[in-house]
Design a protein around this nucleic acid. Structure first.
Length: 457
RNA sequence: GGCGACGUGGCCAAGUGGUCUAAGGCGGAGCUCUGCAAAAGCUCUAUUCGGCGGUUCGAAUCCGCCCGUCGCCUCCA
C-alpha cells in the first residue's frame, strides 16, 4: 500500500521491514479528559492497524502515556491530588472511551514514569558523545550537532531562530536546544540522575519507548500534525544520535487536526468536546464514521450536524444488513467489484472516504437485489467484513438501560399488530407515534413489524 | 516574519493532466412500494472546481500572482 510520509512529503510504497509491522503512535498526556480530537487521531491509526492486519500483517503497536510533565504537575497541584491520582484517572477515562469507540488496544502502553532508566541511559550516552550537555542540573540536546535537524518539519535552524522567542536567563547554548532532563524544583516529583534530582523532558520518553519496544528502526510512527515540530523532530534527533541508526522511522504519518469552530480543538485552548459528552448523544459508530468520511490528513471541523449526518449514513449501512440474506441464487451482487474498490482506496494512503463510497454503493446494490428477492447473504457478509476493517460494528447499539425495555416494547408492538389486523388504523397509528415520541421507531414490513431505538439527540 | 496545508454543489467530502458535463454522505424535490407512515428503490438537485493570468491539443488537477482560511514556529492527537 502507499502511505504519505511527512518526511518526504509524498506517498510511497510501504512494505514492513520484517515479519511484522512496527508501529508507534504518540499517546496522550493524561491531565484532562479525552476529547474528540484524540478520538479522531486514534480512530485513524486504529483503522490503519486493522487494515494492515486485514492485509495479513501482524502489527506490533505501541502507544505511550506521557504521565509526567508541567501540565500534569500544575493540574495535580490545582486539584490538590497526587500526579498518580490525576494520571490514573485520565488513563482510565482514555481506555474507557477508546474501548467504546472500538479502538483496538495496543500491545504495550508504556508510561514515561516507568521508563526512567531507559531515558537516563540514552541521555548519558548522548552526553558522552557530545550530543547533549548538562547545565546546572538540566541536560540539553545540542541541535547544532545534528546536521539534519529539521528534516521532518522542513525547517532550518536559521529559519527557526528568526521566529523563536529568546528566553531570558537560559542555560542553552542555542535557542533551539531542548531539554532532555530538567532539574527538580521544590515540591515536584523527581528521580535520581547523574546530574542530580530531576525529571525527563518532554520528547525523550517517546524515543526511549519506541527504541525499547520496537527497535532502532520503526516502520510507522504517527500522531497529530501538531506533533511534527518540535516533538517528532526532537525524537528523531535523539534517537538517531543515540543509536547511530538512520532512519529512526521509515514512514511518518500525521493526521489532520480536528477543529471546533475556527480553531483546532485543544486542551490548552480549552475549546473542546470530551468523548464522553459526544458519546452521550451519538452512537460510537457514528462518531467513527464521521471521522472516516473525511481523509485522515485533512483537517475536520467537529459539528453536531456532522455527527448526525454520519448517524443517518450509518443507518443506511445497518439497514442493508437486515434480513436473512436468502433468496434466488441467480443474478446476485458482484461482490468482487466492491472489494476491489475498497482495497484500492485503502491502499492509496488509507482513503477511507473513497472506501466508504464503495460500501454505500454496495449497500444500495444489496437493497436493490433484496427487493427483487435475490440472495444477498454473501454481499452482506462482504459489507460487514469491510465495515469491520474500518472498525464499524454496524450493530444496532442499544444502551444497557434500554435493554430493560425490550419485553415491554415487544408487547406494545405485538398489541399494535393485532389492532392492525383488525384494521383499527387510528389506534395503531396513534400507538406508533406515541412510541416514536418515546424514542422507539416502528417499521411495518411484509414480514412483520420491526422496531428499534432512535439514537438519542 | 519563517515554514507548511487548504479553498470543489445548500452542507460535509473524494478526485490532483483526458474515462470529470466531478465519487460518496447529509439535506431538499418528485415518483414507486405501503392502509398510512417508516425503510428501501428510482429520478432530479455543480457544463463547474476561490479570483485573474499562463503552460498544454486538453487543467478542478501543472506554473505565477492575488484574495481568504487554518496549522506549526510555546503545551497539544
Amino acid at each position: 500500500m502507499r502511505l504519505y510520509d511527512t518526511m518526504t512529503g509524498e506517498k510511497q510504497e510501504f512494505t514492513p521491514s520484517g515479519d511484522e509491522v512496527t508501529m508507534y503512535v504518540c499517546g496522550v498526556t493524561p491531565y484532562a479528559a479525552t476529547h474528540v480530537g484524540h478520538a479522531l487521531s486514534y480512530v485513524y491509526f486504529d483503522v490503519l492497524r486493522r487494515y494492515l492486519e486485514h492485509r495479513g500483517h501482524r502489527v506490533r503497536h505501541v502507544e505511550n502515556f506521557t504521565d509526567i510533565d508541567d501540565k500534569i504537575i500544575e493540574r495535580a497541584r490545582a486539584e490538590g491530588i497526587t500526579i498518580e491520582e490525576l494520571t490514573s484517572r485520565h488513563i482510565q477515562d482514555y481506555f474507557q472511551v477508546m474501548d467504546a469507540l472500538n479502538v483496538k488496544r495496543a500491545y504495550v502502553y508504556p508510561r514515561a514514569t516507568q521508563e526512567i532508566p531507559q531515558m537516563l541511559e540514552i541521555i548519558s550516552t548522548l552526553v558522552e558523545r557530545g550530543y547533549a550537555y548538562p547545565a546546572e542540573g538540566d541536560v540539553y540536546f545540542r541541535v547544532q550537532k545534528e546536521p539534519d535537524y529539521g528534516k521532518l518539519s522542513h525547517r532550518t535552524l536559521e529559519g527557526m531562530v528568526a521566529g523563536v522567542r529568546v528566553e531570558g536567563g537560559t542555560l542553552k547554548e542555542h535557542p533551539l536546544d531542548f531539554a532532555l532532563w530538567k532539574r527538580t524544583k521544590p515540591g515536584e516529583p523527581s528521580w535520581k540522575s547523574p546530574w542530580g534530582e530531576g525529571r525527563p523532558g518532554w520528547h525523550i520518553e517517546c524515543s526511549a519507548m519506541a527504541l525499547r519496544y520496537l527497535g532502532n528502526t520503526v516502520d510507522i510512527h504517527g500522531g497529530g500534525q501538531d506533533l511534527i515540530f518540535p516533538h517528532h523532530e526532537n525524537e528523531i534527533a535523539q534517537a538517531e544520535a543515540y543509536t547511530g541508526v538512520k532512519p529512526f522511522v521509515r514512514v511518518w504519518l500525521h493526521n489532520g487536526l480536528l477543529h471546533l469552530g475556527e480553531e483546532k480543538m485543544s486542551k490548552s485552548l480549552g475549546n473542546l468536546v470530551t468523548v464522553k459528552d459526544a458519546l452521550a448523544s451519538h452512537p460510537p459508530d457514528a462518531l467513527r464514521l464521521a471521522f472516516l468520511l473525511s481523509h485522515y490528513r485533512s483537517p475536520l471541523t467537529y459539528t453536531d450536524e456532522g455527527i448526525v449526518g454520519a448517524e443517518r449514513a450509518l443507518e443506511r449501512l445497518v439497514n442493508a444488513l437486515r434480513g436473512d440474506g436468502e433468496g434466488r441464487a441467480d443474478g446476485g451482487v458482484d461482490v468482487h467489484l466492491y472489494r476491489e474498490r475498497f482495497l484500492a482506496a485503502m491502499d492509496d494512503d488509507l482513503n477511507t472516504p473513497q472506501a466508504l463510497a464503495s460500501l454505500f454503493d454496495l449497500a444500495r446494490e444489496i437493497n436493490r437485489h433484496r427487493e427483487r428477492g435475490v440472495a444477498v447473504g454473501e454481499a452482506q457478509g462482504a459489507l460487514r467484513e469491510m465495515a469491520g476493517v474500518l472498525g464499524l460494528s454496524l450493530e444496532e447499539q442499544a444502551r444497557p438501560e434500554q435493554k430493560d425495555a425490550y419485553p415491554f416494547v415487544d408487547l406494545l408492538v405485538e398489541t399494535r399488530s393485532r389492532l392492525r389486523a383488525d384494521r383499527k388504523w387510528e389506534l395503531a397509528d396513534d400507538l406508533r407515534s406515541r412510541l416514536e415520541e418515546l424514542g422507539v421507531l416502528l417499521e411495518d414490513t411484509p414480514s412483520g413489524t420491526l422496531w428499534r431505538f432512535k439514537s438519542l439527540p
